[in-house]
Every structure is written in C-alpha cells, then in structure tokens.
C-alpha cells in the first residue's frame, strides 16, 4: 500500500473512527457518504469501542509475503457491541482453540511494512478479550 493511501486511512486504522447517521443513528464503518439505511448525508464521527464477538474466521497456513513469521494465524469477522462488523487479523491466540462467539478486543498492532527499509503500517487487530 502506498504511503498516501495508508495515511488517508489513519482515522479508521488507528482510532476505529466510524460515521453515525444523524437521522437514523446507524453506524457505518468505514464511513459512507450516503446512509444506506435512510439515505441521509449527514454524519457524526464516533469512535468504536473495539469490543465484540468473533462471528466467523479462517486460519491462514500459507500466508502471503510479509506474514510468514506469523503463520498459522486467523483472520476473522468481529461484530462489535455497536453492531458494526469488521474483518481483521486475530492475533495473540491459539488458532486451534479459537471459536465463534469468543469475546474479542481490538489492539494496536503492526499490520505490515514495506520491506526492512520502508514505512511501517499500523492498525487494529483483535485478541481474545481475557481481561488483560
């Protein structure tokens, strides 16, 4: 990913900023220009809690370049307590005991880097929410 493209995503990747429709309160992540629920075009920026439950996941055993040090790892969809669903890597977990319904919490992690000399891209991943 190019630096400018990543930089534009910082509010989403770093702070889980979403758009809450001022007319119908629906929350959209990533933010939308037009509310798919009611058609309104005015939103407030809200920060998602980062807490939710694992809806579904898959285990990556043959990773793409840049992720080989982490294999096997899980990628899943987490439904946050606000009702928003987002896909992310599930880290700090035992992939063999992971199950749908597990409580998750978003943590700030390195997502990828452009080689050993390039920019480091940060963002959210989920870890099992075990109170630490």
């Amino acid at each position: 990913m190019q630096v400018p493209r990543f930089w534009r995503e910082i509010p989403r990747y770093y702070r889980l900023e979403a758009a809450a429709c001022v007319q119908c309160d629906a929350i959209h992540f990533p933010p939308r220009k037009i509310c798919p629920s009611c058609g309104a075009n005015a939103f407030e920026t809200v920060r998602l809690s980062g807490r939710g439950a694992l809806t579904t996941f898959t285990i990556i055993r043959t990773p793409p370049s840049g992720f080989t040090d982490q294999a096997p790892y899980a990628v899943g969809i987490v439904e946050l307590d606000e009702g928003v669903r987002l896909m992310a890597q599930i880290t700090d977990c035992d992939v063999d005991t992971l199950k749908t319904g597990d409580r998750m919490i978003a943590k700030f992690r390195r997502i990828r880097e452009e080689g050993r000399t390039g920019v480091i891209m940060y963002g959210y991943k989920f870890v099992p929410d075990v109170g630490v």
Partner: peptide, 16 residues
C-alpha cells in the same frame, strides 16, 4: 514481543 508488536504498539496499548 510478538512479530506484530514494537515500541509504538506497546506504547499505544499501555496509553489506552
């Protein structure tokens, strides 16, 4: 640290 952790990530998670 895990392969996706560094001083920046630990700092942010501690600061939160």
């Amino acid at each position: 640290p895990g392969p996706d952790e560094d001083t920046a990530t630990l700092s942010v998670n501690a600061a939160r």
